[in-house]
Computed example of a mutant assay.
Amino acid sequence: MSNFSFTGINLAISTPFNDDGKVDYARLEKLIERYLAAGVRGFVLSSGTGMHVYLSQEESKELVAFGAKVINGRANIIAQTSALLVEDVVERTRHAADCGAGAVMVLPPFFEGPADDDGVFEFYASVARAGLPIIGYNVPQAVGVEITPSLLRRLCEIPEFLAVKDSSGDLSKQAALVRTGLPVMNGADPLVPYAMYAGVSGLIWGGANFAPKTCVELVAAAQERRWDDAREIWRVLEPAMSLIWQGDYVQSVYAASAMTGYGAGNPRRPLSRLSAAKSDVLRSAIGELVERERLAH
């Protein structure tokens, strides 16, 4: 849509941790500056890739406040405010608004929550009380709730409901969401160029943490309909983007980012570092990205 504010890459930025497992704010500031220099113009703070589920509510709120202060209007900000209790989602969303976020990303009810369309609609209608634009999160393989085209149409009747991020990984289902004519954001790394060709409104991209310059180049080529150029750039990105989607996603993004020079430390427990064997496979998949990204420094 022409008035959609979150086109292009919205980086689901990894949360840096120090050796004690605490959020490393000094490193976060440096990473944000480097991603801005690489051309990233949208950030998702406290994202899934940023280990939202393993941050306390206060840590998540502090992370959003700090990140927004560093970004300081130089890029769009989406904050994930997902929680089990609606009241907590509303509180987190109001805090994100106070920090200057332009939208929030919110999972539908999960962990034995309502799974029917009426329950999902009522949940998002309640979150809308906080007043910020809402990006719904379609990841049925993780939460057991699917946002279908018919449900998306209904959700977009809520004035604050802006779009859905589709991380199902199913291109045919994502294309069906796109055909509604409503804003859809791709959240599946291996689908990026295909999703852009299908007409998604924007991207929320975790894998861009380890290859921001190359990802920005790919998106620019696709937006300008230089599909031959996009396919050539995707040739470099595809092996790693496909591999991280096959399992150990967060650990793989942290490991790959360290390999390409955008390290955020280790993921927080209970997640562990990627095993040596898997790291070797990942390093091979990254290939020439290390050199491409080095030239961006």
Rank of each mutant, 00 (worst) to 15 (best):
S2D: 14
G8D: 13
I9N: 14
N10A: 08
L11N: 02
I13D: 13
I13R: 07
F17P: 03
N18T: 02
D20V: 05
I32S: 12
A38R: 04
G39I: 00
R41W: 08
R41A: 12
G42P: 07
F43D: 07
L45F: 05
G48P: 05
G50L: 05
H52G: 10
H52Q: 14
Q57L: 15
E58S: 11
S60N: 07
K61L: 14
K61F: 08
V70Q: 11
I71L: 10
A75L: 07
A75M: 02
A75N: 03
A83K: 03
L84H: 07
L85G: 08
V89T: 06
T93S: 11
D98H: 09
D98P: 00
D98K: 11
G100E: 09
G100Q: 03
P109F: 06
P109I: 03
F111K: 07
E112Y: 15
E112V: 13
G119P: 02
V120N: 07
F123V: 01
F123I: 03
F123K: 03
A128G: 02
R129Y: 12
G136S: 02
Y137H: 12
P140G: 05
E146M: 03
I147S: 06
L151W: 06
R154E: 14
E157I: 00
L162P: 05
L162S: 12
D166W: 13
S167W: 09
S167D: 12
S172H: 15
L177H: 08
V178Y: 08
R179W: 10
P183R: 02
D189H: 08
P190Y: 05
A195Q: 01
A198L: 14
A198Q: 14
L203V: 02
G206P: 04
G206S: 10
P212G: 05
P212W: 05
K213M: 11
C215S: 15
C215I: 04
E217N: 09
A220N: 12
A222F: 09
A222V: 12
E224M: 09
R226W: 04
D229N: 01
R231P: 04
R235Q: 13
E238I: 00
E238C: 05
P239K: 01
A240R: 00
L243W: 10
L243V: 00
G247M: 05
D248K: 15
V253M: 12
V253D: 09
A255K: 13
A256V: 00
A258N: 13
M259S: 07
G261E: 13
N266D: 15
N266Y: 14
S272V: 14
S272C: 13
L274P: 01
L274F: 04
A276K: 11
K278T: 00
K278L: 11
K278F: 08
I286Y: 10
G287C: 08
G287A: 13
L289A: 06
E291H: 11
R292H: 14
E293I: 00
A296N: 09
